[in-house]
Write a protein that binds this DNA or RNA. Sequence first.
DNA 1: TGAAACGAATCACGCCCTGC
DNA 2: GCAGGGCGTGATTCGTTTCA
Length: 412
Amino acid sequence: MEMRAAQGARLLTEASMNDNVYEECGKSAAAEPITKRASREEGAQKSLVIVPTKRGRTIGRTNFSGGGDMKNNMVTLKDIAERTGLSINTISRALRNKDDISEVTKKRVRAVAREMGYMHNALASSLRQGQTDTIAVIVGDISNPFFSWHVGEIERYARGCGYITYMINTEEDEALELRAIRNSLQRKVDGIIIAPSQHSIGNLLYLQENNVPFVLLSRRFRDVSMPYVIQDDRRGGYLATKHLIENGHREILAVHGPLYISSAQERLQGYEDALAEYGIRRNPDLIRGVSAIPGNCKNVANAIAGGEIPCTGAVVFNDVIALEIWYLLKKLGVRVPEDCSIVGFDNIYARFSTPYQLTSVGITANLASSTVDMLVRLIRRRKGESADIETEKVLDVKLVQGESSGRLPGGS
DNA sequence: TGAAACGAATCACGCCCTGC
DNA sequence: GCAGGGCGTGATTCGTTTCA
């Protein structure tokens, strides 16, 4: 703790600190004073500045190391006002680089702020402004690379828009999801990005009632109007199935996720579309459901290996489950793709160097940036700033050929 | 139970000083 | 004398917690 305080002191006292305590960089940088960044950076230690105030408080960067009452030790605008003999209003405006404050005064105020170890109080600022510059990202399963990848991307894009994000994992559990929503509302986030569990719509209606901007990520409710950004799941299911059909497969297994999840429903519809287009009868024995959470595919793999499911190819709900089935089949002596081709969804492993490359359906556009962009527009609209908003966005998909699928020997 | 306090920002004025 | 820049003043606001 002391080390961190010392590092902060170095950054606040050395010339490396920007002249402007609130670095001017449009919305994004204005939302994060440079002092906040200082505490994150690595640096050498340096002696601290201890400053007595008129109120008899000792202030300086050592304050954070003692485990005392931090609230009483924080340097405030009032302290700087007392020290400089200026008003609180002038201090505030000088630190925010307002035009009606002279450069001489600004420099003086910044110097005293640095000397005293002033750190912008985002909590107080949020209180006054009615915004926290934070976005909650609520997902069902962060262990799924699809979500972890996109959450990382969301964080990056949101940061570029001046927002801090925090992520909550719901384990696809409805009660945990409600708790996550309530927690986010209590923290007065400016907006929420949520991949809903979709057990029911109640949680999202609750969110809607609270009038907080939100965007559904990767999932949607057909019969209720809520902003969403999804991939074209139906077309994805169609492309995956068509790929196998055109490689000679006729007995194609559909391994779908829980059908209360819109993406699972729509991918299955796409599967059926392709079968219908090529005149292949829909066989209920070749449609199997699995949990959205990986680790429950043994039954399916055993059934394929044991001939209980007579298929030569499989369209699988997502890449994680597809890879799991591939692995299980290999252990059971079933060769992929020679004995059974597999097509996954999300094309997530194309981003990593893995021993095996799945054939998979992936998005052609950027899901994260589209989602953040929509949410930011909704937030701005709520604040009264006019903004054109497309609230239902379906991103195109394409099939990416990997090693897990191939032409059926002897197939047409 | 209700008032006060917390910290920062905002607003509407108003004053002072300087230059023309 | 006037205009305008620079800054001050005091009230108000926000949501939560503390205290009487």
